[in-house]
Design a protein around this nucleic acid. Structure first.
Lengths: 165, 165
DNA sequence: GGTGAAAAGCACACTAG
DNA sequence: CTAGTGTGCTTTTCACC
């Protein structure tokens, strides 16, 4: 389905909304050089097609009382088991993301917790609910995160349709 | 217990905005059971305090022509070098996040590219600009990602102030 | 695909209690 | 914090190109 990459205008709309998710259609229209209705229509189409999956406030984990981030790599203990790990892990709200990966381990999950002891407890929960062994990498600091998807900014800046990669 | 965790109401406001970043103040007020002016004031305070750092559209990388995600672990080649890796890496738009971590490697970055060959090129760029060796873990699929920060949903659901973690 | 105009709704800054 | 007022802007739809 990756056959047709986004149109240039749509890419620029997406780029603006990736940076400022609350941008008004009026502003958006001015920035991309279209009428308000046209922009509105395009945004709705992007939402319907699932290119825009939603809008979210970016929150500061530290100020929310969850200063400790870590990546946990999971290795199944019983390889014969059905692979429903994501469903099992989904119930743990401390898990922010879950990726199936190619490598020695099967999954990488990103977690956010309040303290080292909370991390300890969470790891126990992960091992118990998913029947896996874990390897944990603690995050010391995060210079940057959640940057706009690659190429959008570039394409928007260049105002052309050159493929980026 | 974390010195000053968010007030309950603020946590619920943050939870709503984390899920629906374009929610109107009118809706928000109805959902958290406050007047519009009060909610407006609280949101502004949360933005000023940096608890809410901004708003972003969540985009589908695959549909944007960047179907390949990977985690790249970096190890400095020259340990005597000044540690300005984040600044050097920031110029590469394919890098979505950069974390300093405790472990064998010094950094983990998350990248999004169009193809395996684009990944190959990016890895060369990373090694060249940061003078590091790399270890790459390719993401096969992402069952979930960017979930609302842990505890917020819980606290909002329970509508009380029990600590989570 | 695009425009522009009209009605309804909302943001925002007030005020007073 | 609530409640209300008011202006201007935004959203949304509709007819039309």
């Amino acid at each position: 389905m990756a056959a047709d990459v986004l149109e240039d205008i749509d890419a620029r709309i997406a780029a603006v909304l990736a940076e400022d998710g609350r941008c008004s259609y009026t502003d958006l229209a001015a920035r991309v050089g279209l009428s308000v209705s046209a922009v509105h229509q395009r945004v709705r189409r992007l939402e319907q097609r699932g290119v825009i999956q939603g809008y979210a406030a970016r929150l500061d984990g530290e100020q929310l009382g969850l200063p400790l981030t870590a990546f946990v790599s999971l290795t199944p203990i019983d390889p014969a088991e059905p692979d429903d790990y994501p469903e099992r892990l989904r119930v743990l709200p401390q898990i922010e993301a879950c990726h199936s990966v190619a490598g020695v381990e099967s999954y990488i999950v990103k977690v956010r917790v309040a303290s080292p002891s909370a991390l300890e407890a969470l790891l126990a929960q992960i091992r118990a609910t998913a029947n896996v062994s874990t390897r944990t990498t603690v995050v010391l600091s995060t210079p940057f995160e959640d940057r706009p998807v690659a190429g959008l900014a570039l394409r928007a800046a260049l105002q052309d349709g050159d493929p980026v990669g």
